[in-house]
């Protein structure tokens, strides 16, 4: 038993070390375009593995990401912009004095972003998880809408639909990649613990879980609040990467994109979520050549913008038809290496 644990840990350390090395290597050797895509992949990885925790591992169908990501983005942006920058920018209404006063460094900004999202998730948990039944989807869907409407309708806090610009560009591969590694590691640790077991039990058979002493309300709340925390942090990283945010960034489509990622990767698999992110975010970029004229030697097709989305959708349909559980199903990468357990 002892020796097995140590070997596992060596592999984990090796993976993390190579990931860190890759971050350094990419930052110093790759061109900006590739680095930007890698940044996107890193941020969406954080969002995907956390979304997968509530949706896939705990089996509670939620549509929350756009809401919590928006909150994280706005909290971070308001904390990173100084009073001068805010004063200059706020064009619809003057910002409240306390809004002007908000200021923190990047680490704290991300921390507050995550914590604030998490607290909101906690307040949502009480009405939703106490009652049995699938209200989570509707509540989170509505939550996302409400957050967007609040952002538009409170220009003294958010500058309304003009959004916040000139956010200091703190995000780089070290931040996004580093936090992504921490997020994946943290989520995997949760999954491989009694809490992860309980989450899966809730997913598989909630009544049986209760019958085995699992406090299902507590478990669902833990999963939901953890997701919210990481989604808030991800939102903050996104704000500091794009350097400008506005309410129209955080529509239902944002959540839908994440849903595609975790379903494609395999609902319930954390490594699947990572793979799904790389394929969807990286893949969509890689497929840009489909938008342009393509030279087949004898003939050239004209530029057909939007073609890559058509192909992308077709691939998605194909995967859903023939591999309904997604790429990884519920397995993690390490399960693929286990010797013929049947």
């Amino acid at each position: 038993m002892n020796i097995v644990i140590r070997k596992d840990q060596w592999i984990n350390l090796a993976i993390i070390a190579s990931a860190l090395w890759f971050i350094w290597f990419a930052s110093t050797h790759f061109d900006e375009y590739t680095v930007r895509i890698l940044n996107n992949i890193a941020i969406f990885t954080i969002l995907a593995v956390s979304y997968n925790l509530i949706n896939g591992v705990t089996g509670q169908f939620s549509l929350e990401p756009n809401g919590f990501v928006a909150i994280g983005a706005y909290v971070t942006a308001l904390l990173l912009l100084d009073a001068d920058a805010k004063d200059y920018q706020f064009d619809i209404e003057s910002p409240y004095p306390w809004v002007l006063g908000l200021q923190a460094n990047f680490v704290w900004a991300l921390f507050f972003a995550g914590t604030f999202s998490s607290l909101l998730a906690l307040t949502l948990s009480f009405p939703v998880f106490r009652v049995r039944g699938d209200y989570l989807a509707i509540v989170t869907l509505g939550f996302g809408f409400i957050i967007r409407i609040l952002a538009i309708n409170n220009p003294e806090i958010t500058n309304g639909s003009l959004g916040l610009n000139d956010i200091p560009e703190f995000s780089n591969l070290y931040w996004t990649g580093g936090i992504a590694i921490l997020a994946v590691w943290g989520i995997l640790n949760i999954v491989n613990s009694k809490y992860g077991r309980a989450m899966k039990a809730v997913r598989d058979d909630e009544d049986a879980a209760i019958a085995m002493g699992v406090n299902t309300f507590k478990i669902k709340t833990f999963a939901f609040c953890t997701s919210a925390f990481l989604e808030g942090v991800g939102g903050g990283l996104l704000a500091a990467l794009l350097t400008s945010i506005s309410p129209d960034l955080f529509t239902f489509f944002f959540t839908f994109q994440l849903l595609i990622i975790i379903v494609l990767g395999g609902l319930g698999s954390t490594t699947g979520a990572v793979i799904g992110t790389v394929l969807v975010i990286g893949g969509a970029e890689w497929m840009r050549f489909l938008d342009e004229p393509m030279n087949f030697g004898l003939f050239v097709t004209p530029a057909m913008p939007g073609m890559r989305m058509v192909v992308f959708s077709l691939i998605l349909i194909f995967v859903m038809l023939f591999a309904r559980e997604g790429i990884m199903g519920k397995r993690e990468l390490k399960d693929l290496f286990k010797k013929g357990k049947k």
Binding site: A198, K200, D205, A208
Partner: peptide, 18 residues
């Protein structure tokens, strides 16, 4: 009502978890 996606070991561990 066993937990269908989990191993035998994990099923029993659920009982111990609290």
């Amino acid at each position: 009502r066993l937990f269908k996606t989990m191993s035998v070991m994990d099923n029993v561990l659920i009982g111990f978890d609290f």
